[in-house]
């Protein structure tokens, strides 16, 4: 028997695996009070970084710590805390690093302002070059 799969069966295999992708998101079956609360939970879990598996969000990660942190987020939602309070809870323990969107502050000014500054420099350089070329014509 040949070990090579035919092209058709290869694709069939790939397609058969597609439903597994849906399992990738690790939202436990929490008992949410409302659809709004479920959405808030989802949004918070996507904004917060799993510190063990650093490039995944809490929503994506299967790490045990991520699961503990999701439990905490859910508990705080149940207690009626605001999104900001929940983010602060995480920042107090893990630092700004847990936020995928770091706050605009003195030490992050290069991060936020850098791309804008580079764009401006590029524009100014382009304008100068274009003007020079015009006068040269």
């Amino acid at each position: 028997m040949s070990c090579q799969l035919s092209v058709v069966s290869k694709w069939a295999l790939v397609l058969a695996l597609v439903p597994l992708l849906a399992l990738g998101s690790a939202i436990e079956p929490y008992d949410f009070d409302s659809e709004v609360q479920r959405q808030r939970f989802k949004s918070l879990a996507e904004q917060l970084r799993c510190t063990v598996c650093q490039n995944q969000s809490l929503a994506d990660s299967d790490a045990p710590l991520a699961s503990d942190l999701r439990d905490e987020v859910f508990r705080m939602l149940q207690e009626g805390r605001s999104d900001q309070e929940i983010r602060n809870f995480m920042v107090e323990r893990y630092g700004d690093y847990v936020l995928f969107r770091p706050p605009v502050a003195g030490h992050t000014i290069l991060l936020w302002g850098g791309p804008v500054a580079l764009l401006l420099i590029g524009l100014v350089a382009a304008v100068i070059v274009i003007r020079k070329r015009r006068t040269a014509l």
């Binding site: 710590l65 323990r93 893990y94 630092g95």
Partner: peptide
């Protein structure tokens, strides 16, 4: 065992 205090301590690994 539950990891609650570890979260307060900012333990991540």
């Amino acid at each position: 065992f539950k990891g609650k205090v570890a979260i307060d301590l900012g333990v991540y690994g």
